[in-house]
Design a protein around this nucleic acid. Sequence first.
DNA 1: AATGAATGAGGTTTCATTCAT
DNA 2: TATGAATGAAACCTCATTCAT
Lengths: 188, 188, 188, 188
Amino acid sequence: MTNKRERILNAAEHLIANRGFQGMSMHLVAQEAEVATGTIYRYFKDKESLLRCVHEERLQEVSQALLKNVDTQTPCYEQFRVLWQNCLHYLLSNADCLLYRVQYEASPLFNREEEERMDERYFKPVFEFFERGRETGLFRDLPAQLLGFLALENLMLLTQKHTRGCIQLNDAIFDELMDAAWNAILKR
Amino acid sequence: MTNKRERILNAAEHLIANRGFQGMSMHLVAQEAEVATGTIYRYFKDKESLLRCVHEERLQEVSQALLKNVDTQTPCYEQFRVLWQNCLHYLLSNADCLLYRVQYEASPLFNREEEERMDERYFKPVFEFFERGRETGLFRDLPAQLLGFLALENLMLLTQKHTRGCIQLNDAIFDELMDAAWNAILKR
Amino acid sequence: MTNKRERILNAAEHLIANRGFQGMSMHLVAQEAEVATGTIYRYFKDKESLLRCVHEERLQEVSQALLKNVDTQTPCYEQFRVLWQNCLHYLLSNADCLLYRVQYEASPLFNREEEERMDERYFKPVFEFFERGRETGLFRDLPAQLLGFLALENLMLLTQKHTRGCIQLNDAIFDELMDAAWNAILKR
Amino acid sequence: MTNKRERILNAAEHLIANRGFQGMSMHLVAQEAEVATGTIYRYFKDKESLLRCVHEERLQEVSQALLKNVDTQTPCYEQFRVLWQNCLHYLLSNADCLLYRVQYEASPLFNREEEERMDERYFKPVFEFFERGRETGLFRDLPAQLLGFLALENLMLLTQKHTRGCIQLNDAIFDELMDAAWNAILKR
DNA sequence: AATGAATGAGGTTTCATTCAT
DNA sequence: TATGAATGAAACCTCATTCAT
């Protein structure tokens, strides 16, 4: 059953999300996934490889969630709104993934080049959206990567703080935040 | 010599910055600080306590750097500009502190309540600045904490990516980013 | 197909020869023999049993090779010469078997009594040859086992060193070594 | 206490001697040496390093024992006799070292080049003895290494079999064996 | 008869912490 | 106060063996 592989990935993500990279031991992963320790090594060469897979599989999932119902034929703002809402909903309903990703981004352990390649692969349409906006003079004259960061990435940090109970957010605030993001990237 | 205590704190910060929480072993800290392993335990009860101290000492330093030359008598935008520039310069010239802090923020390991208390203690004047801006109707109707986040905290993530070589930033971009931050918090 | 049994035995021998007893895992044996791991257990009760079989099967083969064309009607020196040459050629052309056997002999793991029984069974004619030589007063007054050792067994160690590239041997040296062996066992 | 280092080396040697390379686990070494597992790693980088040290330290000891009382001024046969007797006595009274060494020699795991360098370093005077004998026309025209092998190294294998109870040796046999070794290397 | 996924005991190694000096 | 050798629990990983298919 390839089901076991998925269980292992989820267990790893969950443990990292809740206990940090330090708190994810192979033994705990096995326990959480309800498999024997040795079983993990049938699916993943070693711990590092498991971590890489957790990352890549989730990246793919995130990018799909992000781009759902984004129609390049609709007005720019409309596309932005869908993107932003997709992002918000995904983050709010996938706490483990969110808490995991924030730590991954912060960690100095990972190979930057590989990460860049993956970002490019999975988020190409997102970057293209911001690039088009910039070319038409709607958005600020900043690299697409930065526009994407201003518009979406800090949402990640905010929802993380929300999920962990550090701040309280509600729908009114979300509307305000989306508007703030839109105004941040708009050319003056 | 209390000098040793400082050396230990710096060593811990440096190691976390460059190798993550996992990469900071007490033995390595001792080596980097050029003290014996046992000496660390004269200054800090245990590893957790050392980590807490690293955090608090730096928080204090950051808050001082942030508020330098901020004059509440000057126009709001001017105060914002100084705050933002202080923040940028501190982050760019204190790579270890920056790389450390990003990981700290992302980590699920720390006591949220204590952190909140510390934030409040050290960043009170910053929050007050945003609060005033909101009350005068200049800034969006969002909690000061959120305004601060929109204005300053994502700068931390950006400079981290810059420091680690994931993105390239320059003065023109920094100007643009400051403007983006300003526009993000401004009421429409 | 009993062919599989042979493949497994060869794989085990080959692995031990090249990686030592430590380097022979059941998984690697299966891979090298191109069978499934579980299949090994159809032919051999467990790892120990497999090792014992590897040993016995090869012992039989060696003894046959050793005694080929040895004619008890010919003069003693002639018989010795054929035995020695057979031994040399077998060892030189069966590197795995050689490298395996040297390790087996050195290992404290195996049951000495069983080994003795096997030696006796398979090498009886060889021992008889040395026994006859002793009784006729041609060879030293030493147990046949020891005469055999002096004459043939150190050839094993020498060819092992040759095969592993530790020493260089050639035909002239081999002639000299055979003469040395002959003189070692000869009564003065 | 550097005493611990010695205890660890002895424990490792003893375990290999009696249970083979496989049977030497770091845990067992620690137990036998009466130290904590972790302590081993203060003295040796890892298992491989421990094995190398066991080897080198013993090699040195063996070479000293071998050359004791060998006087290059005395006749060749006398020197040979002392060498051979030294070798015999050392092997008979250092069972662990003997059983260890035989396995080491048989193992395909070790770096041949390094071994050669060590042999050369520690056994130089032995090789020189055989070289002189060859140059004066007393010994066979074989490399000193091979003469040494014929004269001494198979003694190692024989005493191993004796120590393990596979064969019975006594003083009369030893005399015979020494004579056999002498006749093996003598030029005809 | 054959497969190979699964198991978990046991291997090597690291590391936070203690304590005699 | 400072040291660093020593500890042993716990980390990662391997491997002989079993068993459902």
